[in-house]
Design a protein around this nucleic acid. Structure first.
Lengths: 300, 300
DNA sequence: ATTTATCCATAGCGATTACATATGATAGAA
DNA sequence: TTCTATCATATGTAATCGCTATGGATAAAT
């Protein structure tokens, strides 16, 4: 019968090789001497060669023992290191995290969150990518993205979605537009205006919200253009193609031909949410969300 | 209680990680599924983190499992390699062998033996050094040399000594010496000649043999010079300081002012022996001596 | 929607084995 | 030689490894 090699054999072997004394080695291992002798004999049987030349007076390594000792030490150290690495990975202190974010989120707290997370978890490799909300949600479900920062979408049975930030909506009108002279603009004033919007599949949450704001104001917006890029939307507004309702942080883009006006309504705000898969309880995800919660709570 | 990590855990883990199916992994491991589940649970307890996210339908690696898998594979392969290396060392196919040889042995079969051994045991590193017989024997006893090729010394309780070669002795006289005209010279003709010899502590066997040859011829040689180097001995003879009795292979040095004459006596021969420590049964030593025996037997 | 099939987890049991204590054998020291 | 230190052997016991039987959950099939 062939007994397989175990780390126990190597642990015992190294102890005896270092002490060159079965009694002391056994003591160091916290066991009695006879079983230690037995296990060394087993190991010798596994290898098919004596590891120690032993008389009742002297214990010394044979050629086979001399060859095995450094390997055994290396293996034991490697096993220990592997154990620690796995533990760290289990605590979310090591691994890879793929984070996606909608373009506008970059204007808000995300950079600070990233910095804080990197400080706290230097062992985690962050893979960041900009992506619209719709593809993000698909990517998360497909397992290609771990966490997405999105304009808050409808609840989804597969996803955990947590609001991390609120941001007012603004009405964007071109510089010379009649409404541009007002300090605030109610949504109902836009009833007859042409709209420039993101397509629903790219930003479902924002799209739905704009629609419901208009519906609440008693009309259905006339969408004349859908743009797939934030910059395009703004430039379409500037060109006078239409008006738009956009998150306040877009102001920071600094488009000179566009005016942003507040909406006098408490519900005219978007929520930025973090989303991740409900089923896998990835520790890195939890670690990251811990940092997010902390930053968001402290930042208000 | 903290159970220690064993290779068994890693073997099972790798099997499950590769199959992503407990049943098939168990089959591959030649065991039933329940104990495999148990052992994986044990491993998860040791690590302190789940390694697989498992439903009854799907098994997939967690972060901790993903981190552990390459390490586990590496460790298992390393253990296998260490086992093989130790086995090879146990068979004398790997390791280091320190071989010493007396200067004149280099003229004989040693180079061929070395070559044959290197061919047969490429994993053994040979450390060769030239050294007189006396220091060799001391070095062998001290464990600094594994095998020595010497002019055969007296038996020694600590040493195994095996004759590997025989070689006639020659009488060396300077070119113009009266005895140089003879084809052979009996030892008794040297009764009144001054002798140049190696000191007893450097070449005890040769020294004792010359002494006993002279004693058998009825005189005690008058030693006028002792030289520590072979070349010096020969040049002293050439310079007419005295005569000497030397192994025949010294002729190959090609000293033009010296004549070598045969001795008409069967006992006028030296034996070259290999010597090694009796106590340690080093497999490399045995492997080497096996090649020596073969070469010597075939070379006669 | 209900049923069925698949598959991992749990329970209980038997056999193995890892370790303990007691004792023997041997080699070096006094 | 006698004594002592030390490794090996013998034997008993407790832990554990693996097996069979069964439970429970989930996805697929009807």
């Amino acid at each position: 019968m062939i007994e397989p090699l175990e780390l126990r054999h190597l642990r015992y072997f190294v102890a005896v090789a270092e002490e060159l004394h079965f009694g002391r080695a056994a003591q160091r291992l916290g066991m009695a001497q006879p079983p230690l002798s037995q296990q060394i004999q087993r190991l010798e049987q596994i290898i098919g060669a004596r590891l120690f030349e032993r008389t009742s007076r002297r214990v010394q390594l044979t050629d086979a023992g001399t060859a095995l000792l450094p390997d055994a030490r290396r293996l034991l150290a490697g096993a220990e290191a592997a154990l620690l690495a796995a533990r760290r990975a289990g605590r979310g202190e090591q691994g890879e995290l793929r984070v996606a974010f909608a373009a506008t989120v970059m204007f808000l707290a995300l950079p600070e969150i990233i910095r804080a997370f990197r400080d706290r978890f230097p062992g985690v490799h962050l893979d960041l990518r900009e992506m619209p909300t719709g593809p993000q949600l698909a990517g998360i479900k497909a397992g290609e993205i771990d966490i997405g920062f999105v304009r808050e979408p409808e609840p989804d049975p597969e996803l955990d979605i947590v609001t991390v930030m609120r941001e007012p909506l603004r009405i964007a009108v071109p510089k010379g537009h009649p409404l541009a002279s007002r300090a605030t603009i109610s949504v109902r004033h836009l009833a007859d205006e042409p709209f420039v919007l993101f397509p629903a599949e790219l930003a479902p949450g924002l799209h739905a919200q704009v629609m419901s704001l208009c519906r609440a104001a008693g009309f259905t917006p006339r969408v004349v253009e859908e743009s797939r890029e934030l910059y395009t939307s703004v430039s379409l507004v500037e060109a006078g193609i239409g008006v738009s309702i956009l998150p306040a942080s877009v102001e920071k883009l600094g488009w000179r031909g566009v005016r942003y006006r507040a909406i006098p309504s408490a519900s005219a705000e978007t929520r930025i949410a973090a989303a991740w898969r409900k089923d896998r309880g990835r520790p890195v995800v939890e670690a990251f969300m811990g940092v997010v919660q902390e930053k968001v709570a402290g930042g208000r």
